[in-house]
Simulated assay, not measured.
Amino acid sequence: MTILFALLIGIVAGLRTMTAPAAVSWAAHLGLVDLGGTWLAFLGYAWTPWVLTPAALAELVTDQLPSTPSRKVPVQFGARIVAGAVSGAVFGAAGGFLVLGAVAGIVGAVIGTLGGAAARARLAAAFGKDMPAALIEDAVAILAALALLALLAALR
């Protein structure tokens, strides 16, 4: 289950880079995952989710701007991979598999990045414009992150 959660939060990172770290930070802050004794413990500090959440919200806005580069350019893709690795490592660390969680998060980020781009392109073509597709993708990323946290809470 730990590795599945890491893969799924990686997919969220592939859809929206900052949504995944914000979600895992809330999970750590709320005590849904124990990161004590790991280098990831800072994600559970009182201020961390309050810094990452506005960053995630800002990303939702900037994603809509025409000047925003493709998620598949190296810098954007790399940021999603790093976010997926860190977020996946959170779930991995909670289950005693930090490195495996990071790898699953990376795989998920690649899936989310490429799959999200393809799905958004198809939706945009169907709508005849990108904005509705982007908003749907925003909703999927946010709801998936919230669903993972809700499931995590239910399993505790």
Rank of each mutant, 00 (worst) to 15 (best):
I81C: 11
L40P: 06
A134W: 00
A117T: 15
L151N: 06
V73K: 00
T17H: 14
A22F: 07
L4I: 08
A125F: 12
A83H: 02
L4H: 05
A23L: 02
A118N: 11
A85Y: 02
A22T: 03
R80P: 09
A118T: 11
R16Y: 13
A118F: 09
V140G: 09
L60T: 00
L100H: 03
M18W: 14
A93R: 05
R16S: 12
L98V: 10
Y45F: 08
L98K: 01
G92T: 07
A150L: 14
G14K: 07
L30V: 02
L4F: 08
A58F: 13
A126G: 14
A13Y: 07
G116S: 10
L146T: 08
A139R: 02
S70K: 07
A121N: 13
A102L: 05
A85N: 06
G84R: 10
G101Q: 05
A93S: 10
L100R: 07
L152A: 05
G105M: 08
R71W: 08
W39G: 01
H29W: 11
M1H: 13
R71Q: 14
P21G: 01
G116R: 12
F97S: 11
G14L: 09
A124S: 14
L35P: 00
Q76L: 06
L100S: 04
T2K: 04
L60A: 03
A153V: 01
L135K: 14
A46L: 13
L60F: 05
R16E: 08
I136L: 15
G115T: 04
G84Y: 10
T19S: 03
A6K: 10
L151C: 03
V86L: 15
A117S: 15
W50A: 05
R80M: 11
T2C: 02
M131K: 14
L148H: 13
G92V: 00
A104N: 06
D34G: 12
A56S: 10
E137Y: 11
L15A: 03
P49R: 09
F97I: 02
L40I: 03
A23K: 03
V75E: 14
